[in-house]
Design a protein around this nucleic acid. Structure first.
Lengths: 244, 244
DNA sequence: GATGCCAGGGATGTATACATCATGGTTCGG
DNA sequence: CCGAACCATGATGTATACATCCCTGGCATC
């Protein structure tokens, strides 16, 4: 096997740590002691440190004063900012795709995805095909990151959506769960469609505005969860690691 | 000494590698062999790998297929995109500062910096105090990253301006060198002033637009260098590592 | 001549022992 | 009683030896 996802000790440590941070086993602000962790995970300090370095890249872990690592602490304000950032960057990706011209094969696939999404969000919300919606939604956003052909933009977008609660599908579970929000899936899909239209017509400003607003759906969901139904918190990936 | 900038072997390696990449000693696309490098730099592979990991964070180095690292290759299109990205992120920082309210101490200092910049860019371009301008310009942009109080935004902005040619002062040397561009220092300063005004008046959209346009000065300088005077390329930090 | 296999060399991945440094408590002097 | 220096402890930082894996080139086979 080749590629950066080989089954190496460092990758094992990376996955294990990510899991423990996401599910709250390791709580925000906690210091990560290398010897203890390496014993817990059953590997040596060398690959563990490698994994910690990569977690720093992902933004889940920070370097402590005087050496060592600690789990990054997130507030709900950070989640709002991360959502805002995603909107800004996706908006930029869309605008550049419109201005510079979208890669035609990618754009064709994006059109197809939007059409398929239509069938996943039928008029009757009870007929929602949720898993299919999530997969197609992820693909739409992945295509968007690639659409304008800029490595710089793509990398930045991938980094920004790396935090679990900033992912384009982070709050979809909430939307499925809460009947009042099922409707907003239709809104989101209308925005997908409008974005494709704007990019196709090379209307950069419109494309940008649409994707910024698109991200705000996530913010609305977040605010609903916080204000109305905190039991949903564990349903949203990564929200468990936010201190509240 | 404390903090993350201790004088450790890994930091030494980091600085040494950065230097060699910036000045073109190690050319873009080159594979970084760990044993050879560790012998050259006079340290062991462990801190060297640590440094390589951090260079990956900075975006100067990529992981190769099947393990190992290689120097990232940049095109001039990448430089344009990095400048665009900086504009977008600085614009966002300014908009959020306007919308949410700027931290008052930071904002006061920013006003002061702009006033001091005025004295560094006098009406007569021959009286330019260049070093002072560079220092104050750097401070202005650093303050901007902090102004809205969002850790998420600040980190992203710092990352995006980490690439040397995306730094706010990357092209200042060109502007000093080329008489035709000295004037644009005055334009830049007018934008600094306008940005402060817009943020103070909580005019978010205007603040965002100003900082986006502000970044375009760098793009203009880049295009001048490419089209008119390629001898200036080595003068711009990091432009040496762009393949042409 | 093309293709697939195998072996060898050289690279990265990992473990571990050792060096160094940060920190907190204790003791001694003022 | 307070402060500063020192020392013990346990953490991270580093070197190095070893394990593993990838790639290349040559050879045999089809």
């Amino acid at each position: 096997m080749s590629g950066p996802d080989r089954d190496t000790q460092a990758n094992r440590a990376l996955r294990a740590l990510r899991d423990r941070i996401f599910d709250g086993t390791i709580t925000g602000g906690a210091r990560l002691y290398e010897v203890a962790l390496s014993e817990t995970l059953g590997l040596s300090r060398t690959p563990l440190r490698e994994a910690l370095g990569r977690l720093e890249q992902e933004g889940l872990v920070d370097r402590a004063e005087g050496g060592g690592f600690m789990v990054r602490r997130f507030s709900f304000a950070d989640v709002v900012d991360a959502i805002e950032l995603r909107g800004v960057l996706e908006g930029t990706a869309a605008r550049l795709a419109a201005e510079r011209g979208a890669d035609s094969a990618t754009f064709a696939r994006m059109r197809a995805v939007v059409t398929e999404l239509d069938s996943a969000v039928p008029g009757d919300p009870r007929a929602l095909r949720f898993d299919r919606y999530v997969a197609l939604n992820d693909e739409f956003h992945a295509l968007l990151a690639v659409l304008c052909g800029s490595t710089v933009i793509r990398r930045e977008l991938e980094r920004a959506t790396g935090l679990p609660f900033a992912s384009p599908s982070a709050f979809l579970a909430v939307q499925e769960e809460v009947p009042a929000f099922r409707r907003s899936l239709g809104l989101a899909q209308a925005q997908h469609r409008a974005a494709v239209e704007a990019i196709g017509r090379r209307e950069g400003a419109r494309a940008e505005a649409i994707l910024r607003e698109h991200a705000q759906i996530a913010r609305a969901n977040l605010e609903y969860v916080l204000a109305e139904d905190r039991r949903l918190i564990p349903q949203v990936p990564g929200l468990a690691l936010v201190k509240h």
